[in-house]
């Protein structure tokens, strides 16, 4: 499925592995949080990059001790109205200092894109046939924010600030 980064479609170099699929010898794979827990040693024995997929019921703290092992953390949105993923992404960045890619997947609408980015999400997986132009537009429509986004750690000087344009 297409991947959007900075308001543009980008290539996805990752393979998302089903829980019962055999582990390929090479190449970056994304495994579920359950599989990570069950097959930790086998997964760490590989040299290829590793990504983990967090269901909305698992918070950032569950993978915090292992974050340096993941080049990618996937945050699932089972329904777009389920906003736990916003907190998960933000905690990965602000509480646990994660600097790798955070990818939002699942049921997400374009209008949530700017909020996801402000919470530290890097990429969003969207359904085939998605009009990327809509996503680019939603990202840059509102340019004023009343709170600091992830990455803006300077002391609060004013309630308002401009959102960095993508």
């Amino acid at each position: 499925m297409p991947l959007i980064e900075n308001g543009r479609a980008v290539a996805d170099r990752w393979v998302s592995l089903a829980d019962d699929a055999a582990l390929p010898a090479e190449g970056g794979v994304i495994v579920s949080f359950a599989r990570w827990q069950a097959e930790r040693d086998a997964l760490l024995a590989r040299s290829a990059p590793l990504g983990v997929r967090l269901p909305s019921t698992v918070s950032a703290g569950a993978v915090a001790p292992d974050l340096e092992r993941f080049a990618l953390v996937v945050v699932e949105f089972p329904k777009f109205r389920d906003g736990r993923g916003f907190t998960t992404a933000r905690e990965l960045r602000e509480r646990w200092g994660y600097t790798g890619e955070i990818r939002a997947v699942g049921n997400i609408i374009a209008d949530q894109y700017p909020l996801l980015v402000r919470c530290g999400v890097s990429t969003v997986e969207v359904p085939d046939g998605t009009d990327v132009e809509t996503w680019a537009r939603t990202l840059n429509t509102v340019t004023i924010a009343y709170q600091a986004s992830v990455g803006e750690d300077e002391p609060l000087a004013l309630l308002r600030r401009r959102v960095a344009a993508a």
Binding site: F86, P114, L115, Y146, Q147, L159
Partner: peptide, 17 residues
């Protein structure tokens, strides 16, 4: 007013339970 501003389109808390 401070809370009005702070909570306006808060990126993390716009899809609460």
């Amino acid at each position: 007013e401070i809370l009005r501003q702070w909570t306006t389109i808060h990126p993390e808390f716009t899809f609460l339970p």
